[in-house]
Design a protein around this nucleic acid. Structure first.
Lengths: 75, 75
DNA sequence: TTTAATTAACACATATATGTGTTTATAAAA
DNA sequence: TTTTATAAACACATATATGTGTTAATTAAA
């Protein structure tokens, strides 16, 4: 089953949740990206549901947000 | 920070947890793989912590195990 | 021990995520 | 309006995950 950009609803919802968590903390994509030590536009791609990111990236983001990685899937 | 095979403790622990969940259900890697519609050796690579798999793969696996994706991070 | 089932460990091509950079769009503030 | 901050939308090279296949090692069963 080929990956079709922008068609995976789960990734869309996941991205919305990440955005919500980030905005709740008043952080810009850039700030979070720096904190998580990943590129800024990577945060955008994830939040828009464009990519299916990896466990390692999720771990970096959750650490920067100071939450358990499970919270990223709590939606 | 480059990915170094077999060095990421989180991935090792994640893999152990997946293996535990799979074995608790009496499923072989092959059976789970077929159910999740992914290659058999992919399950092995994840369980050994060799790769940092993606959200999409995690979702397929959790559906096959009939658990919430959060459970995969419950360790 | 012998067989069967399961898992590990390879190789290799392909798809996708990552990383870096630039440009455009949007929105808020001055 | 003009500036500033933020996010989106590109392009492109590189790294890594995925998918397919084969063979070796391990484990369980007969």
């Amino acid at each position: 089953m080929p990956f079709v950009k922008g068609k995976d609803n789960y990734l869309i919802e996941f991205g919305k949740n990440l955005r919500k968590l980030r905005e709740q903390r008043g952080l810009s994509q850039e700030y979070l990206a720096i904190d998580a030590n990943i590129p800024t536009n990577q945060i955008g791609r994830i939040e828009r549901g464009e990519i299916s990111t990896t466990i390692s990236t999720l771990l970096s983001i959750s650490k920067a947000l100071q939450i358990d990685i499970k919270e990223l899937f709590n939606f």
